[in-house]
Amino acid sequence: MSDRIPVRKTYKLYIGGKFPRSESGRTYEVTDRKGTFLANAALGSRKDARDAVVAARKAFPGWSAATAYNRGQVLYRVAELLEGRRAQFVDEVVAGEGLSARKAEAVIDETIDRWVWYAGWSDKIAAIHGSSNPVAGPYFDFSVPEPTGVVAVLAPQGSSLLGLVSVIAPAVVTGSTVVVLASEQAPLPAISLSEVLATSDVPAGVVNLLTGRTAEIAPWLASHMDVNAIDLTGAPEQALELEVASADNLKRVLRPDAARDADWTITPGLERLLAYLETKTVWHPIGV
């Protein structure tokens, strides 16, 4: 009975709600911290990245037009499903990050709670980041936050799940859509997260996930003219050249911050939420 051979999973990309292999046909070997083979992950290409941006752009009108209440509920649902897959994520984080099972459990706890924390912001951020503006004239003047659009995210290399969730959730909760490049060395928890997203109520294309070489794909995302913002957290060494490339269409750039990105267990501030928000101010005359 103990001779049963486990059925292994094929780890693929997640683009537009589907799980394609890389169009390049390439894969790379993922191992645990001791070098033991875990899986062959897709080695994403420039074309995959561009497909992912197209999918994210396509999803943006619907997702950003959803009510904040609806987005909050959809994202909370993701946390419910994460809770149900605890054991799988613990195993993957143990293998990928070399943590003890106990530490990995704490990471999963924090991951789920982080997701819930961000989900709750959906219908609250406007109450603290919007304003009615007392202009000196007969005008009603108010400012509201709006999502910036398509956000490219280079996920942190070290924290393969908690770090990943901490960089995706703040972008999607306010209505932007995301192309995320997973941790290069430990991409498997990210791929499993995409399976959770695919089976929750998150619309196809809201989150698109690539695996592969950060150094290879990041420049294509940074120079892509249909990406509105980029988070460089996962590429501190390349940050300067990526930020320069991002200037071509004046992407909003979230720079890596060694101090901030060293410990993902700390409850974040609003920086990542605000990074992907535009402020729209509306003037309207007042008079009989």
Binding site: Y69, G120, I128
Partner: peptide
Amino acid sequence: AAWFFYYAGWADKLDHAG
């Protein structure tokens, strides 16, 4: 249900409530 859902999210964000 919406009322509980909304205020649930405030519980750990009181520092930000102004």
